[in-house]
Nucleic acid binder design. Sequence first.
DNA 1: CGTTAAGTTGAAGTGAATCAAGTACCGTGG
DNA 2: CCACGGTACTTGATTCACTTCAACTTAACG
Lengths: 244, 244
Amino acid sequence: MTAKVSKVRKAVLTMKQIQLRCDWKVGPFFKPLSPEALRDFESLESRSFHGANVTLFAEQQTSSRVLVLLEGEVRLSMNSSEGKRLILGVARPGEILGLSSAFSGCPYEVTAETLFPCQIASLHRGDFLAFLKHNPVAYDTVALGLSLDYKRACERLRTLGLGCTSHAKLARLLLEWCAVGKESGQGPHFTVPLTHREIGECIGVSRETVSRTLKEFKRKRLVDFHGSTCVVSDHRGLESCCLT
Amino acid sequence: MTAKVSKVRKAVLTMKQIQLRCDWKVGPFFKPLSPEALRDFESLESRSFHGANVTLFAEQQTSSRVLVLLEGEVRLSMNSSEGKRLILGVARPGEILGLSSAFSGCPYEVTAETLFPCQIASLHRGDFLAFLKHNPVAYDTVALGLSLDYKRACERLRTLGLGCTSHAKLARLLLEWCAVGKESGQGPHFTVPLTHREIGECIGVSRETVSRTLKEFKRKRLVDFHGSTCVVSDHRGLESCCLT
DNA sequence: CGTTAAGTTGAAGTGAATCAAGTACCGTGG
DNA sequence: CCACGGTACTTGATTCACTTCAACTTAACG
């Protein structure tokens, strides 16, 4: 089972485009806005399209813009000077990027790179803050977005800091992904848009260890892979791996 | 050099009490509030005092309250079922605890325990959200607080996920603490209100490794300890440890 | 002054990284 | 159609940093 990720990364696009091009305004950020607020927003935003594997912004850069992801997927990661990488997660349409830095004025905490081609609406930091001042309704969504960023960071901290073995860490990660996946006949499933190397970079283990551990999980009939789709056959069993 | 932490944990209190009892309202949360807003807040809050080593709230609990730390210090940590602990940091007076959960409605992400005796103002989650609605000025402070929580989590993620060796991780942690410390004659210094075990729990290494690594740092004249005060004598040298 | 918690130091054991040598798969172009 | 290069994945052998265990010293506090 070699994950045909690069193939998938291209194929998925067309579907997503069809699915999202028309209804991005119903996302959590835009939904509560009044028509006037929406017009206000549109007058400030600038729209852009990007291909796959483009860096939108990098950690340490001073924050100048807030991005709203309308279409596509964006990988959020941290990079060390020696080339090591820690992947925090993948942002989906509707998410706001660079929120934390917009408020704190600090440089971006993470690096954002497009995984698939993306459509993005971006605002200058100052415009964004001014927009919020005029439309306090949006504060709630923004605070919620910030909470979720924090929550995800905590989730990752828990896997990295409390999972003693690599088995435990991988099991936790799979369960985390499983929680946002869908239910099917044989159990919950989800698609992993990441290679083994990238999975390893989510939990701080090597590519080889991911391969070996995944093999063992499959041997124990805890999970099963069909292409890049992962089916969790034994949720309970996977949970018990976390406690090791 | 055994850190006389428990002694310090009591001694510091009186100083802090004198220092903060009178002027807690100038903290970042209260400063921008109008007198009316302040009265509004005071009508909603309930004040409480706690001794050392009291659990204010625990992760997984459903969020019911937002706490404003007026006096004392609070340890924020995550705990695994097997008794392993990951310390995220120490909250200082003026900080708001439980913000993220208040917005998301999710259970608390972390456990908060008093390190020193504390004075705390707390609001029901609903009251807090209503207060914000009526006083949008406070949103900025709250968003900033949330940003800083996120930033700290990211900082910790960087040490845990990108620091390969225990030396690198400890060096990063010391530099992190150093950044919020004060300047003195021989270099920047700060006090560590944590034991070796707790320091280890910040970066996911064992007590013994902290002891050994600190010893080596002292041998290399990178840092120096006087009681529980740490002086960073060679900031550059410590930085170069992070790159290993 | 005895008890308890924290810190030190050495020796042994181990999980996972690293190294190395493969195989499988995809896209490209002859 | 098949040879080609590139990337991802697989799998075994070796190595090493850190944990664990154990014995000990030091400090704190009633």
